[in-house]
Design a protein around this nucleic acid. Structure first.
Lengths: 153, 153
DNA sequence: TCACATTTAATTGTTCGCAATTGAATGCAG
DNA sequence: CTGCATTCAATTGCGAACAATTAAATGTGA
């Protein structure tokens, strides 16, 4: 019986790091919600805008690689951003398979409204920048090992 | 200009801990996918089963509090688990507002097939149990602080 | 007891996320 | 140049996730 209980430890919800990550992601989402509502963005849309504020005029594929998302997710999302007037989607002339995503003036301007968001998140996290940076690095390292395992599998 | 670059650091994708968590959650999901396909479960369904293997015959609400999910998510998910023959949903007789979720024999039996899953995840994580436990605790602590901030906000 | 608030699931509508497929453009071997 | 594979975005279908609403059951105060 002691052996059975020990075996069960591996299936306990509280012992799953994946559940920790899963539930933390949802917690972040809920904290972001009211902040992003003021920008009329969802969280995934905010990520795309972050990517574009760094590198504008890039193919859809590049955004996908950066965010680990595919066209099935990005195509409709980008159409919504275009409908909102934040980006423009144009076929590349050199390679007509590619769709280039470029910020509109409105999309660039939104960056200024977004500047206050990270500070609010930091406050909700209730810990130091240093701690968050360290934790972030560990999580990224784990993510990259998981993705590497996928490539091998 | 140096000042503008410094200000932009806060909006850089790679500096967002939320994106680290978000992308790690998706990476976990992709690693779980082939393992859970063999159990005919999605990842959220797997979480519900983990909860039920620990505490059977509980109200939907309890599962929701445990997993941080609401009825809008759980009601259709549990109907799918019921359709798959893994759980039974019954109105409580003491309080007819509540729906009690109980494992079927098949649902209990699935636990044995699930025992090999955590080991596979550990291998894909490519690090020690100790490291994972420590990281998990930090992530849970962050999640709880975020949820606490929501309550205050 | 009666009115009213609270609790609990279910429902509706929108947005992700991904697998699988389609179709067009491009690259490449012969 | 031809034939075939590859790349890329779009589409379809399904399962979350959540806000907002609805409806029924329960609890509470007067």
């Amino acid at each position: 019986m002691a052996r059975k209980v020990a075996a069960d430890q591996w299936l306990r919800l509280d012992n799953q790091i994946c559940f920790a990550v899963y539930s933390a992601a949802h917690a972040f989402n809920r904290v972001y919600k009211p902040l992003l509502d003021r920008l009329d963005l969802t969280y995934p849309q905010y990520l795309v805008m972050l990517a574009l504020w760094e590198h504008d005029g890039v193919p859809l594929k590049d955004i996908g690689e950066r965010l680990f998302l595919d066209s099935g997710t990005l195509t409709p999302l980008l159409k919504r951003l275009e409908a909102a007037g934040l980006v423009k989607r144009t076929r590349s002339t050199e390679d007509e398979r590619q769709v280039l995503i470029a910020l509109t003036a409105q999309g660039q301007a939104l960056k200024e409204k977004a500047r206050s968001v990270p500070q609010s998140i930091l406050e909700a996290s209730d810990c130091s920048v240093g701690e968050l940076v360290a934790l972030k690095s560990e999580i990224v390292a784990l993510r990259d090992r998981l993705n590497a395992a996928l490539g091998e599998g």
